[in-house]
């Protein structure tokens, strides 16, 4: 395959950036999107140009490091992570636009690399169960209804990639935050901190400069792990419950 790529290049956090055009040839349909970028980068390095910087690590869709907006869609046309997107979903001769996640809370570090530490701070504000090492009772001391365990798991699958924020027209982090709130709040182990958790996490989320939720549903459509949109409603319910005291 031969492709034209238009990629956002930005030398550093304070530098101005622009879309730059590249041509790549000999792309195999079996390549992942990142392997296609590897191919481009090998060429760029050999020419003495700076390769395109992008975050990636596990390349099997679980670490959440990779993420770019491809033709206007977070992680591209398939509902998966960028590392699991394969070139067979494109056609020979295509022009592909590649941009970083765009959000005030995710400033660009370089090229396609953004700073997602806001997510870590949201988790630090309450996305945990206080259980210092050694303090735990036997694992079977508290049975957890299977339904609650399954709901918790479904929400715990979030990989923190930030596609929800990138896809949301408002740059909102509601889906990310709700995934953690729901995961921990449905479990009996999470009950003692149920109210403070949702209050603190929502406060932290707002303080990071994420936008508000207008329920466009773009986040859930882009989520590679299928965190469902009603999670946001569940978090709102928890928030109102906490507000009532």
């Amino acid at each position: 395959m031969n492709l034209t790529l238009r990629i956002w290049r930005q030398a550093g956090p304070d530098a101005a950036g622009s879309m730059t055009t590249y041509h790549v040839s000999g792309i195999s349909p079996d390549m992942s999107f990142l392997e296609m970028l590897d191919t481009l980068n090998e060429e760029l390095i050999t020419r003495g140009d700076q390769p395109v910087a992008f975050d990636h690590d596990c390349r099997e869709g679980i670490c959440g490091a990779c993420g770019m907006v491809i033709n206007g869609q977070a992680h591209g046309p398939e509902r998966t992570t960028t590392c699991q997107l394969h070139m067979r979903h494109f056609r020979d001769g295509d022009t592909i636009d590649v941009e970083p996640w765009r959000a005030a809370a995710f400033p660009v570090v370089k090229d396609l690399v953004v700073d997602r530490s806001a997510f870590d701070r949201i988790i630090g504000s309450g996305g945990y169960i206080t259980a210092p090492t050694g303090s735990a009772p036997d694992a079977h001391a508290t049975p957890v209804p299977k339904e609650a365990a399954d709901t918790a798991f479904e929400h715990a699958e979030c990989i923190g990639c930030g596609a929800c924020v990138a896809a949301c027209p408002n740059g909102s982090a509601m889906l990310f935050t709700s995934a953690k709130v729901v995961h921990l709040n449905v479990l009996p182990q999470g009950a003692p901190e149920r109210a403070s958790r949702v209050r603190n996490m929502v406060t932290a989320m707002d303080a990071e400069g994420f936008g508000g939720c207008t329920n466009t549903g773009e986040c859930a459509t882009a989520c590679p792990k299928g965190i469902p949109l009603p999670s946001i409603a569940a978090m709102n319910r928890e928030f109102l419950r906490a507000a009532r005291g």
């Binding site: 735990a136 365990a149 918790a152 995961h183 182990q189 999470g190």
Partner: peptide, 22 residues
């Protein structure tokens, strides 16, 4: 054995049976 206790207390959603046990 302590690891499992610790992780359950942290809210790790291990697979469970219908009776609620691991």
């Amino acid at each position: 054995v302590e690891i499992i206790d610790q992780c359950v207390a942290q809210g790790v959603p291990f697979a469970r049976e219908y009776g609620g046990l691991l």
